[in-house]
Amino acid sequence: MEVNLPFGGKVLILEGDFHQVLPVVPKGTKAEMIDACIVKSPLWKDVKVLHLKQNMRSVNDEEFVEYIQRISDGNELFIMDDLIKLPPSMAMQWEGQHSIYNLIDQVFPSLQEHANDARYMVDRVLLTPINDDVEQLNAKIISRFPRDEFTLHFFDEIEGDTQNLYQQEFLNSISPGGLPPHILRLKKGAPIMLLRNIDPKVRLCNGTRLICRGCFNNVIDAEILTGQYVGTRVFLPRIPLKTTESVHLPFVMIKRQFPIRLSFAITINKAQGQTIPTVGIYLPDHVFSHDQLYVVLSRGVSQSTTKILVQKETIPEEEGVHTRNIVYKDVLFPSS
């Protein structure tokens, strides 16, 4: 623009929520995560903040709105180690491993009868903090899903390795975040999520949810479940996926696979920005990042359609189910 002003003097509209999860700094401290926020940018002095204050997801459940607002502000009553008590209407008691299947049945009732129902699949999901638990939940659900199973394997290689220095078994065992698992188990009618931007023009972007309509060796027939292009049929190819520096491997690994994973369950961070009428929350351990609890609770629309299973042992002298809430109040309300 030949103008020595931020963004060439153009007006730029940014959207975000400081109540949600902060930028990811691998193994970073609280100070490092806050320092990565836009409020620490030299451009922040030029930003005018416009506040949106009405919760449109849960407009019909005022009590739920007030509760998650207290969670996000860090004002909910807590006991030691930032533990807060969950409402009995949402909390499920941990009674052993079968409790996980009870949660699945709460979120996906009569699953076999809705194996081809796109609306059923888009309206419900299980959320949990880390990828390992996402894969375990998806494996449990796909095994109960009707239809024949398609098993698709990665093709793994090391960039520039012409001497095959690493065994395939070792490469197959590496499963960094952001990449699909080495063995992808699919069935027709199962919900899936994209892990890469393929065609933004038709909303085939990282995080787009789809339903599998057909599976072949080199292409997957899928239907978009959300957004402007809901109902559109698309074909997803195998593509090379490279590991990034943040994985801290001594080499760049290339995995040739479909850029998708099952989405009966997804991580809390991946769910940011989505509205999900029926939400199941599985916490095998407490949340580990700023306002993850607020994010996971606010994906739903009411207390009655949100169920939480906390596996971590609660405080013996305190009745009810408790979980941890991490809030950095010094970044919730930027001064500008």
Rank of each mutant, 00 (worst) to 15 (best):
D81S: 13
D81C: 05
D82W: 04
D82F: 04
L83R: 07
K85T: 01
K85E: 05
K85S: 08
L86Y: 06
P87N: 02
P87L: 02
P87G: 00
P87D: 03
P88N: 08
S89I: 10
S89P: 00
M90R: 06
A91M: 11
Q93F: 07
E95W: 02
G96M: 09
Q97V: 10
H98L: 12
H98M: 09
H98T: 06
H98S: 15
S99I: 10
S99R: 12
S99C: 11
I100G: 04
Y101S: 13
Y101M: 08
Y101F: 12
Y101N: 15
N102C: 10
I104G: 13
I104F: 14
D105Q: 12
D105G: 03
D105V: 04
Q106P: 03
Q106T: 05
Q106S: 12
V107Y: 03
F108Y: 15
F108S: 09
F108P: 12
P109C: 13
L111Y: 12
Q112D: 13
Q112H: 05
E113T: 01
H114Y: 09
H114V: 06
H114L: 09
A115H: 13
N116W: 06
N116H: 14
N116D: 15
N116F: 11
D117Q: 07
D117F: 07
A118G: 10
R119Y: 04
Y120E: 00
M121W: 07
M121E: 02
V122D: 00
D123W: 00
R124G: 12
R124V: 13
V125I: 15
V125K: 05
V125Y: 06
V125G: 04
